[in-house]
Structures are given as structure tokens and as C-alpha cells.
């Protein structure tokens, strides 16, 4: 049962993509880098290229971590929706299959200055 109710009940999702003025949400997080307390919430146009996402949205947020400067962006391992995934840097979010509220994760093995890795 999708909800316990007296009669048929259909909810309205609050965070539908139409509500974001033509943009979409993307979540991004850097595994084992917990100086940043939670995954970042980014709000971007779907035409944004993946390279732009990195340069203009993500990289500025990562500066506070001492490992940030050492990231080799072409060597990092990506997950999308918790599944291994390879981005095309020059393609847009849409072309990369990054839809509204997708979660991207990236791993940088060997970089663990602040956070011990279990």
C-alpha cells in the first residue's frame, strides 16, 4: 500500500524538475573525504557540460580539502546511482544521462590526508 489512508490518496512530489526554473538538481560527493559533512547539492542547467560541472560547481567547493589539488580528474573512479559509471567530460548532463536528483560519487584511491580509510 503506497500510503495508509481512508480512501485513495495520491501525493504530489514537491521536488519535481519543473519546479527548478529549467534547471535540475545533481548531488555530488567525494568518498572518504568527510571534511565535507554531506554530499553537495548542485543546481545546474541540463545543458551544462560535465567539464563545466567540475570547473564551476564542484572544484570551488573542494578547495578546503588538502587533497583537492592532487586530484587527477581523468583517473578518478565514478559512481552514478551507486553503480560504476564513466562520464564524458565534453557532453552535457543530459547527454551523460545525469537526470534530476542523480547522485554522483567519486573515489580517489590513495588520497586520504584528513580521513582515515577503513
Amino acid at each position: 500500500m503506497p500510503v495508509v489512508a481512508l480512501k485513495e490518496y495520491v501525493g504530489v512530489a514537491r521536488d519535481r524538475v519543473e519546479n527548478f526554473n529549467g534547471k535540475q538538481l545533481v548531488y555530488a560527493s567525494w568518498d572518504h573525504h568527510l571534511l565535507f559533512a554531506a554530499p553537495f547539492l548542485l543546481c545546474l542547467a541540463p545543458q551544462t557540460t560535465f567539464a563545466e560541472l567540475l570547473e564551476t560547481a564542484l572544484k570551488p567547493l573542494l578547495q578546503a580539502d588538502p587533497d583537492a589539488a592532487a586530484i587527477d580528474w581523468h583517473a578518478v573512479q565514478w559512481l552514478k546511482g551507486n553503480q560504476p559509471w564513466v562520464p564524458n567530460f565534453d557532453a552535457s548532463l543530459v547527454a551523460n544521462g545525469i537526470s534530476h536528483k542523480d547522485q554522483l560519487r567519486f573515489k580517489t584511491p590513495g588520497l586520504n590526508t584528513i580521513c582515515a580509510v577503513s
Binding site: 560527493s29 572518504h32 554530499p39 551507486n82 536528483k101 547522485q103 582515515a116 580509510v117
Partner: peptide, 15 residues
Amino acid sequence: PTLICHREVEYKGDK
């Protein structure tokens, strides 16, 4: 404790 817990589901086309 070194990895954020990521959990997601899809429902009616939204994540």
C-alpha cells in the same frame, strides 16, 4: 565510519 551512507530509490520516475 569513513564513508557516507548513500541510499536511493526510484518512485514514479523520480529519485
